[in-house]
């Protein structure tokens, strides 16, 4: 992925998180907890379970639609990071060839089931993480983490990281553009030049860190970062978490997919 795509995707995802929809306005803590529950539930499914995972697609789909997040964008991002999971999973069909089912006359091996299960889990977990940031501003996520017991030092510097991510990415982009303009036909693109460029970026960064620190001192910084507590759990948030938990529990502990299948078969007959 080239620099520009990464940079613009980053900005796009971040901008999405400042929209105002019902999903965005939920308390960040509620969303962090719900996402955590979702991930644990999905990952807890056994290796050969595919059908049981399917109902969980509801969660990302609801989040994306209610949160007005473009699904194509999320899917593209999921695809971009998929190679490792695909790589690890693709061996299963060849190594685990016991036939476990015959669907439409074709024998299905256990390996294919587990591969499908990995892919499905991958899509579910990755999209859940992306949707969490797409529907919750990053400072919101950080404050949620803080309130959920993360060490304050970690959260403070995470907020600084977020603040300067875009500034430094932009600076890096200027450097990359200047580099592209002067590195022709693959020459001058190697590790030595890279080290020098990143060295320049690092020097600028360290200078900047010093200026930021001075700016903080000028506004009375004395070691800790004060904040106005603005998070408030409303009953909507509690209801949201409760519904999510019930949904997840139901899909995990009851064969929802099969039940629906049976029902459909019954009606069809």
């Amino acid at each position: 992925m080239n620099f520009h795509t990464q940079y613009f995707d980053l900005g796009r995802l971040d901008r999405l998180s400042y929209r105002r929809t019902a999903v965005h306005s939920l308390d960040p803590r509620a969303k962090v907890i719900a996402t955590g529950l979702f991930l644990v539930t999905v990952v807890s499914f056994p290796k050969y379970d595919v059908a049981g995972l399917v109902p969980f697609l509801l969660f990302p789909v609801l989040a994306a639609t209610l949160g007005e997040i473009p699904i194509g964008f999320i899917l593209r991002k999921v695809l971009i990071v998929s190679p490792f999971a695909v790589f690890v999973g693709i061996f299963s069909p060849f190594l685990d060839t016991r036939t476990v089912a015959v669907i439409a006359g074709l024998p299905v091996s256990a390996g294919w089931l587990s591969f499908a299960s990995i892919l499905l889990k991958f899509a579910l977990t990755v999209s859940a993480a992306l949707l969490l940031v797409a529907t919750t501003s990053f400072p919101g996520v950080c404050h949620a983490l803080r309130r959920l017991g993360c060490p304050p030092i970690f959260v403070s510097q995470l907020l600084f990281l977020y603040r300067y991510l875009f500034v430094l990415a932009e600076e890096a982009m200027r450097i990359v553009r200047a580099w592209d303009m002067r590195a022709f036909a693959g020459r001058g693109r190697g590790a030595t030049v890279f080290a020098r460029l990143v060295g320049v970026l690092l020097i600028r960064t360290l200078d900047r860190a010093e200026r930021i620190y001075q700016a903080m001192l000028c506004r009375g910084f004395a070691g800790d970062i004060p904040r106005l507590g603005t998070l408030r759990l409303r009953s909507v948030d509690l209801v949201f978490v409760a519904i999510t938990a019930v949904f997840l529990g139901a899909c995990r502990f009851f064969p929802v997919t099969e039940g629906i299948g049976l029902l459909a078969q019954g009606i069809w007959r």
Binding site: L159, R189, G190, L206, E210, I212, G223
Partner: peptide, 24 residues
């Protein structure tokens, strides 16, 4: 006092630097 902003900004630096590719 300096450490927290320094950590955050260096984190952002690592992030930005990781976005740049070079030819092996």
């Amino acid at each position: 006092d300096r450490t927290i902003p320094l950590m955050g900004v260096l984190g952002a630096f690592i992030f930005a630097a990781q976005m740049i590719n070079f030819t092996i």
